[in-house]
Structure formats: C-alpha cells, structure tokens
Computed example of a mutant assay.
Amino acid sequence: MTGAAVLDGVAVVCLIAGGLLSLVAGIGLIRLPDVLSRMHAVTKPQVLGVLLILVALAASLRNGAELATLVLIGGFQLGTAPLAAQMIARAVYRTGRLRRDLLDADELAERGGRAGPAE
C-alpha cells in the first residue's frame, strides 16, 4: 500500500464522517424545540463536520498553498462559530424568546442578567 492510497482512504473516511455530522446538525436544526437547543445542535457537530471535511480536502490536495488556506478556513471556523452562537444566545435571552421550562439552570437570572463574572 502506498502513501497516496492511505491518504485517499483517510480523505474518504473524513469526508463521510464530516458529511454525516453536518447532516446531524441539519436534522437537529429542524427537530429541536427552541432556539437555544437548535443553536447547540448546529454549532457543535457542524464545526467538527467542517473540520473533518477540511482534513479530507487536505489529504486529497497535498499542496502547501492550499493547505495553508485550509488551515485558515479551519481557524476562522473555530473562532467564529462559537462566538456567533454565544451572541445569538445572549440576544435570545435578552429578548425573552426562549422557553424557560427547558432550561436546567438560569445563571444569568441568578446574577441579575449581568454578563460579567459572578461575585
């Protein structure tokens, strides 16, 4: 078995796994009841799915300039998706468009709605 065949096998496995995780994120977006649950279902598996797809692309492309671009894309994905989810969650909380019966704990209400560290 050559190195190219092994890299192609890794690319296939990562591509399938990334696609399945992205599919799970899409199903979670449709099936879950409220914004916070949907946001959680979209950000967690979607980010890992995109990273696996980027690994599959890196294994199949094998070019330095393209690998650098893929690393940048992965870094931006890791940096922006959690931050966007946090901002959406804060906006949903502040506007009251969430189902409080689905919350296990409401730490913001305990702190009076402040976003800073607990005192």
Rank of each mutant, 00 (worst) to 15 (best):
T2H: 07
A5Q: 11
V6I: 12
L7T: 02
D8M: 12
D8P: 00
D8T: 10
G9F: 06
G9K: 03
V10Y: 11
A11H: 02
A11I: 03
A11R: 00
V12S: 10
V12K: 03
V13W: 03
C14H: 02
C14Q: 01
L15I: 01
A17M: 11
G19L: 06
L20W: 01
L20M: 12
L21D: 00
L21N: 02
S22Y: 01
S22K: 09
L23I: 13
V24Y: 14
A25T: 05
A25Q: 05
A25M: 08
G26H: 03
G26M: 13
I27N: 01
I27D: 04
G28S: 08
G28D: 06
L29H: 02
L29E: 03
I30Y: 13
I30T: 12
R31C: 08
L32Y: 13
L32W: 05
P33Q: 09
P33C: 07
D34S: 06
V35E: 03
L36A: 07
S37C: 12
S37W: 12
S37T: 11
M39G: 07
M39Y: 04
H40Y: 13
H40Q: 14
A41E: 05
A41I: 10
V42S: 14
T43Q: 15
T43P: 01
T43W: 07
K44Y: 06
P45M: 10
P45E: 09
Q46Y: 08
Q46L: 10
G49P: 07
G49L: 05
V50A: 14
L51Q: 08
L54F: 09
A56E: 00
A56V: 00
A56M: 03
A58Y: 01
A58H: 01
A59V: 02
L61A: 10
L61S: 06
L61D: 04
L61Y: 08
R62G: 01
R62C: 03
R62A: 14
N63K: 12
A65F: 12
E66C: 04
E66D: 10
L67W: 09
A68Y: 07
T69S: 10
T69N: 14
T69I: 13
V71F: 15
V71G: 01
V71K: 03
L72K: 07
L72Y: 11
I73H: 00
I73F: 13
G74P: 05
G74H: 04
G74N: 05
G74Q: 06
G75L: 11
G75V: 14
F76Q: 04
F76A: 12
Q77T: 15
Q77V: 15
A81Q: 09
A81P: 01
L83M: 11
L83Q: 06
L83E: 02
A85R: 05
A85Y: 07
I88P: 01
I88D: 00
A89I: 08
A91V: 09
V92Y: 02
Y93I: 11
T95W: 07
T95E: 15
G96Y: 08
L98P: 01
R99P: 03
R99W: 09
R100H: 13
D101V: 06
L102T: 06
L103S: 05
L103M: 13
L103A: 11
L103P: 00
A105R: 13
A105F: 13
A105T: 15
L108N: 03
A109L: 09
A109S: 12
A109M: 06
E110W: 01
E110G: 07
R111A: 15
R111N: 10
R111Q: 15
G113K: 00
G113V: 06
R114S: 14
R114W: 08
A115Q: 09
G116C: 04
A118N: 04
E119I: 06
E119R: 08
